[in-house]
Nucleic acid binder design. Structure first.
Length: 296
DNA sequence: GCGTCCAGGTCTACC
DNA sequence: GGTAGACCTGGACGC
């Protein structure tokens, strides 16, 4: 199927907007120039989906390994739109940054859409796996979760459901997933979602002030300022800076010759951008990812 | 080989 | 409200 994309949408800059495309079940096939993943449908079935930019760049081409009913195809389209943020209106953001000469590269490159998982559940689990550890350990934990608890499909795996994670013990998460002290947090989160007491999927469409949504995200044990701020970015709310050691290091390298600066100093630079500050900060920190070395 | 530090932090107890 | 200390893991580094 071909799904039309908004003007100034750039498929590969969206795929590489942050680290998610390197975490299972996402896989980038650089030779075929595709993004792949196993997607889970509401009827419990799984299918391997391959996504590529269409020839004339006016959309994305989505292929499924298995034959889909009309209803299933519609559901895959909905997932693709959510993952690639196709329904997010960035026009107000582009209008805002266009007022600043130093940010006019943002609309020119068509950046600002941050890749996310089909579900909020997957995004939150992965975010908890990024806290207080190296990126290598994050990929290891997510790979272990997917390989050990995800439904198999032709040598690949889906991301585990809330029920699958909720059904294992804390010691399993420590011993086999290597999640360490994050294990009770992952377990509690999965159990709250599986039981229906926490309806995280509603967060993407919640008509709530950002502060209230932030408070709900912070109710997840293990989601502190950094994790909650980043989860909000994936919900389309950019009021928080979500500072972590990587961003702090990158910021000092870019603006202070590598000298460490306080969080207050960083916040001062972005506060005039109000609801867009978290997105502008992230795009500035990752601008060099899209230099001439960018392979796509 | 061993000890220490730290990486895309967070929670709790205590003041 | 602010802060010290504890917490898993695994790679890098110094000795």
């Amino acid at each position: 199927m071909m799904i039309p994309t908004p003007s100034r949408f750039h498929f590969w800059r969206t795929v590489y907007s942050h680290g998610w495309c390197a975490l299972e079940p996402f896989r980038v096939n650089r030779d075929a120039r595709t993004l792949e993943r196993v997607c889970t449908l509401s009827d419990g079935s799984n299918t391997l989906v391959t996504i590529r930019a269409s020839r004339n760049d006016s959309g994305i081409d989505v292929a499924s390994l298995t034959r889909l009913s009309r209803r299933q195809a519609k559901e895959i389209e909905t997932q693709m739109r959510a993952m690639l943020r196709l329904d997010e209106d960035l026009a107000p953001f582009y209008r805002h940054v266009s007022r600043y000469a130093r940010y006019r590269w943002i609309p020119r490159l068509g950046v600002g859409r941050l890749l996310r998982a089909p579900t909020v559940f997957e995004d939150v689990v992965k975010m908890l796996c990024t806290t207080n550890c190296s990126w290598d350990l994050t990929t290891s934990m997510v790979t272990n979760l997917t390989n050990m608890l995800g439904e198999p499909l032709d040598g690949r795996r889906a991301f585990p459901t809330p029920e699958a994670i909720a059904g294992v013990s804390e010691s399993f998460l420590r011993k086999h997933i290597r999640a360490g002290y994050r294990s009770p947090y992952l377990l509690e989160f999965a159990r709250r979602v599986a039981s229906g007491s926490l309806t995280v999927e509603a967060w993407r469409t919640a008509d709530l002030p950002t502060d209230e949504l932030y408070a709900q995200v912070r109710s997840v044990k293990g989601a502190g300022e950094y994790a909650a701020g980043n989860i909000l970015r994936l919900l389309g709310r950019y009021d928080y800076l979500a500072l972590d050691s990587w961003v702090r290091g990158k910021y000092s390298e870019l603006y202070h010759g590598g000298r460490r600066v306080s969080d207050t100093t960083i916040a001062r630079r972005y506060r005039e951008h109000g609801r867009w500050q978290g997105l502008i900060l992230w795009l500035e920190m990752t601008r060099d990812w899209f230099s001439e070395k960018f392979p796509f």
